[in-house]
Design a protein around this nucleic acid. Structure first.
Lengths: 145, 145
DNA sequence: TTCCTTATTGAAAATTCTTTTCAATTAGAA
DNA sequence: TTCTAATTGAAAAGAATTTTCAATAAGGAA
């Protein structure tokens, strides 16, 4: 991941808090709320303040390095974004989040909506919800919600 | 709108607060936050408490009568939902929100993702962002954000 | 390497958002 | 009209997020 390049290119410093948060998100397989990030870093022995978590997430979002996931069952959570246009699919049972590449599948939908509504479409938010391979098996992880 | 039927069918009463909030959402063309709903009702002379706004929105969401819109520039806002499967498109300039009917445009995308990820897709969140007819005209509503 | 400047952090407090509690009220059935 | 349970309002509690400002530290310059 080239987050170091992106930070310094924009004149931001590569501080310990930023490094820690990015590295935590890199190994997380679920979207994490600011609280959760703070908790996990504390458990890893870091003294990072919650305020810094908020600030860092704000910056990383601005830089396009992370993005918010809106799981209706949860508070908004943050996940790392890789290069290129992606969306996410989230497990409704264990909340595992996975990125998948966008293709032009929705171009025709966008065209249709532009015709129907006279809006000019410039962006979209697409998140899929369902069951991950593990939770599809009814007996593997307990009761489905 | 048949919200009265839906409420009483499920054993809920048709109280004044519920009526007021639904009627406000019926004429709103932007998604409204609980705060905004409270403010607007107060201006209309209602003494409705903010707490009741939260409670009512929670109930109406549960009943499928309203839905949350996640405009990244704004706090989450609520809009009325009509019968059937719809999505929303939101103006990035004036935040006007419009419902449009879902079609099977995204079925092939869902199929593809199921194959690629081995998730079973059960739901999705799709919101488009762009410029409404009024705001497409560069000189009509001022500077674009 | 050491120094210096300025971005960044931490801690506390302020603010805002949302939920809980419980007594008073009211919708709607009897 | 009366009665009862659902609903509301007000206050308070609890979370989430932002602001402020002095202390710290990153990274370029000497």
């Amino acid at each position: 991941m080239n987050y170091k390049a992106i930070l310094s290119q924009k004149g931001y410093r590569l501080s310990a808090p930023r490094k820690q948060i990015i590295e935590l998100l890199e190994v997380a397989d679920v979207a994490l709320s600011p609280q959760q990030i703070h908790n996990q870093l504390q458990q890893n022995g870091s003294a990072l303040g919650l305020v810094s978590v908020y600030r860092t997430l704000g910056l990383l979002t601005e830089l396009g390095l992370v993005t918010i996931l809106y799981d209706p069952q949860l508070n908004p959570g943050y996940v790392l974004r890789t290069q290129g246009h992606h969306h996410h699919i989230v497990c409704q049972n264990c909340h595992k989040a996975l990125e998948f590449p966008a293709t032009n599948d929705i171009d025709s939908l966008v065209e249709r909506v532009e015709k129907q509504t006279s809006f000019q479409v410039r962006d979209h938010l697409l998140q899929l919800f369902g069951l991950c391979p593990d939770c599809k098996q009814p007996d593997s992880k307990g009761v489905l919600s």
